[in-house]
Amino acid sequence: MPVTDVTTDPEALTMTLTADFAAPVDRLWSVFTDPRQLERFWGPPGWPSTFSSFDFTVGGRANYYMTGPRGEIGGGTWEFIEIDPSSSFAVLDAFADEEGNPSTDMPASRMVFAFESTPEGSRLRSTTYFASAEALEQLVGMGMVEGATMAMGQLDRVLEGLRAYAQGKGTQVELLDDTHVRVTRLIEGPIDLVWRAHQEPELLRQWMLGPDGWRMSVCDVDPSVGGRYQYTWEPVGDTEGEPFGFDGETLVSEPPRRAVTTEHMTGTDFPSTLNDLSLYEEDGATLITLLIEYPDKETRDMVLATGMTDGMEASYARLERELIPA
């Protein structure tokens, strides 16, 4: 995790976040001043940002919105008030309505992003100045510290590039907190094909099989928002095991980049998980990121103990092998 310190100072009315990165300062500067790169990390996992405008000039504005895993929308706006190229910039940061107008119901703040070189690469120091102790307490109470820390934790993959970040590492599983797990896997193939492989039954049947010796006997998918799906697997040949399956509903669909679904083990009273799938393509390779939200830590640990990671890796390897043209 690149964040090394987060300090709130009720007397100075500030929150300061410090993070170190193994990348030159010019590279770090570029990801904060390019909206397409900002979108890849600005927002905690499960709340990706979309910048609808970005005028990086003193007096200019940037408008964005975050889309939650159940389709919730939260808007924000920046007014750029200071820019010192490659060194720092400052914004007036506010919540915003659907038209991008600053909200009068929520406190605004001033944010200063400062960048400096270090022997290992570069350092970001982000300082937020609040208008009052009440505003600081309100925003920190809403999870500002945790959200900013998790957002910065997504920056390494942007700075490194997809292949440097994930190539050859297989399926990686990160425990983000007691109820959230992030799974990543690089696929050497275009985003449109990887998206279709997750949406179309005839493709799903070819790769989403887990370890050898299983077949998908049921694959019904309605990928539209509100649509439902059902998967069932059963052993073949001498493979031991009992048939099992999952069913759920699509909550968010943004082809070809994001789909959020619920997942429930068919025929059980186990609670559902929330599965947030996002895809990003760079130089012909696509990074799959699956953010899974469990109802509690016990369920998370129980699922991970089933060998989930090995099964997912077998499936993703099959996706590359069977569906990606040589």
Rank of each mutant, 00 (worst) to 15 (best):
2 P>N: 10
12 A>P: 09
16 T>M: 07
17 L>K: 03
18 T>D: 04
18 T>I: 14
20 D>S: 12
23 A>V: 01
26 D>T: 09
26 D>N: 11
47 W>L: 11
50 T>R: 15
55 D>T: 11
56 F>I: 07
58 V>D: 06
61 R>Q: 11
64 Y>E: 09
75 G>K: 03
84 D>G: 06
85 P>G: 01
87 S>M: 10
91 V>T: 11
94 A>S: 12
97 D>V: 00
98 E>Q: 12
99 E>G: 14
100 G>K: 01
108 A>N: 07
108 A>M: 09
108 A>F: 06
110 R>N: 00
111 M>G: 12
119 P>D: 01
126 S>L: 15
126 S>C: 13
126 S>G: 11
126 S>M: 15
127 T>K: 08
132 S>D: 08
138 Q>N: 09
138 Q>H: 01
138 Q>W: 08
140 V>E: 12
140 V>L: 03
141 G>N: 01
141 G>F: 01
146 E>W: 05
150 M>F: 11
152 M>H: 15
153 G>H: 00
158 V>H: 01
160 E>V: 10
161 G>F: 04
162 L>Q: 07
163 R>Y: 03
165 Y>I: 11
165 Y>D: 14
166 A>M: 04
170 G>A: 08
170 G>E: 10
171 T>G: 12
175 L>E: 15
176 L>D: 07
182 R>P: 06
187 I>M: 13
187 I>N: 03
190 P>K: 04
190 P>A: 09
192 D>F: 05
194 V>L: 12
196 R>P: 06
197 A>M: 03
199 Q>K: 12
201 P>G: 07
203 L>P: 08
208 M>N: 14
208 M>Q: 14
212 D>M: 10
212 D>G: 07
213 G>S: 09
215 R>K: 15
216 M>S: 03
219 C>R: 03
221 V>P: 08
222 D>P: 00
223 P>L: 08
224 S>T: 13
224 S>Y: 07
225 V>F: 10
231 Y>H: 10
231 Y>R: 04
232 T>N: 10
233 W>I: 11
238 D>S: 15
240 E>Y: 00
242 E>A: 13
243 P>F: 06
246 F>H: 12
250 T>G: 02
250 T>D: 00
251 L>W: 05
251 L>F: 08
252 V>N: 01
253 S>W: 09
254 E>V: 12
257 R>Y: 13
258 R>V: 05
265 M>I: 14
267 G>C: 05
269 D>Y: 02
271 P>I: 03
272 S>K: 10
275 N>E: 15
275 N>Q: 13
276 D>E: 02
277 L>F: 13
278 S>N: 10
281 E>S: 14
282 E>T: 05
285 A>K: 09
288 I>L: 15
293 E>A: 14
294 Y>C: 08
297 K>C: 13
299 T>M: 15
299 T>S: 13
303 V>K: 00
304 L>Y: 01
310 D>C: 06
310 D>G: 11
316 Y>S: 10
322 E>H: 10
323 L>S: 11
325 P>R: 03
